[in-house]
Design a protein around this nucleic acid. Structure first.
Lengths: 199, 199
DNA sequence: TCGTCTTGACCGACCAGTCGGTATGCTGGT
DNA sequence: ACCAGCATACCGACTGGTCGGTCAAGACGA
């Protein structure tokens, strides 16, 4: 069933994931009941528990999706062509863009950490650390080349920048005056300038 | 009651507020039951509902406290002495310091917005906007004087910086290697440098 | 005795998750 | 061509338990 191109309807599993993402982002994980999720997806509880082990399982699925996407995109830009400054700028602007394009995912990702099962939380944290380290290595690379100032630890720079990314879910509205690309360019500019050595 | 310096024990109201703050920060508002709060404060539910209207009332009280403190401190630095660059640097470093010193408050403040009653949320948002605007005005002042670069909107700079503040609750640990003062200095440096005009 | 403070049993609502059952359709033996 | 056997997909009433909040009654200082 559901042969390519023949089915207009999303499969049930996907509908559940979409509904859960929207609701978790809007009202938070704890304030969303399973009943609401299945109602939004147009199925019953039984169907949900057929596809997922638990409500937490839905959340884990969302985390996995976000982690995979973030890492993929960072790799692509960090290992790309150009000077280290160009690569850092491109990677930074892309993170903002991706975050803005998947705002619901990002809201959940940054706000629901403490709802994860301890084991899952450990995995997420480890994955997240690898991600930050890849970003940090770009900064260190620039510092060693002498094109970035090195009187602030690279870790600090990364935490500084990712704060801004994290924060996007709080203030950015897709129907506001700014596109994701614009915010991405501004923020990447600010990051690069804060790294410009004194002349 | 509770005359200054005479009572060794914190009054019940204060104990409840402290316990709620600690628990909300640790496990989140929705995952903390009233039962746990009153147990941690060493009183019963009845006592709590004598001092507070509801669980939400506790949260509102915490928000009010944070809002008042933030605004007070910003005013003091923004209206202080020195060049605009010095004042912005001092204000920025102070926000970080205050956030780190009251990490539980900050975690709650930045994570529990969507649990607020709609009316309260409106008030909090308005107060928060006034706060951001005061900060933004400092940036604009520097841009008009020509000591800050003005090719990035001041609002963007403020959102960029407060993201980093917001984010502190996620990664900063009081018993880690960095003091709040150090983080404050680093972040304020990064902010000021990102505003340095091309020479 | 009056008002403030505190108690703890209790309430109805709601929650995540379970379970017995049904419908559908594929598979392979005849 | 047929049917028995079985797996997948789904249903929705139900359960055990927790939740925020209430209330009548007591404790106690003024």
């Amino acid at each position: 069933m559901a042969r390519l191109g023949t089915s207009v309807e999303e499969p049930v599993r996907q509908r559940l994931l979409s509904a859960a993402t929207r609701l978790f982002a809007e009202k938070g994980f704890e304030s969303t009941s399973v009943q609401e999720i299945v109602a939004a997806a147009g199925v019953t509880k039984g169907a949900m528990y057929h596809y997922f082990d638990s409500k937490d399982d839905l959340l884990q699925e969302i985390y996995g999706r976000v982690l995979r996407m973030q890492m993929d995109r960072l790799q692509r830009f960090a290992d790309g062509e150009g000077t280290v400054a160009e690569r850092l700028h491109a990677a930074a602007a892309d993170v903002i863009n991706t975050t803005v394009d998947n705002l619901d995912d990002s809201k959940i990702f940054f706000r629901s950490n403490h709802q994860l099962a301890p084991d899952t939380r450990k995995i997420v944290r480890a994955e997240r650390r690898r991600y930050h380290e890849r970003f940090r290595d770009l900064v260190i690379e620039g510092q060693q080349e002498g094109v970035f100032r090195d009187d602030v630890p690279a870790e600090m720079v990364v935490d500084f920048f990712f704060g801004s990314v994290h924060h996007l879910g709080t203030w950015y509205h897709p129907d506001g005056p700014l596109t994701g690309g614009e915010v991405g360019r501004y923020f990447a500019d600010l990051l690069l300038r804060s790294l410009t050595p004194a002349s």
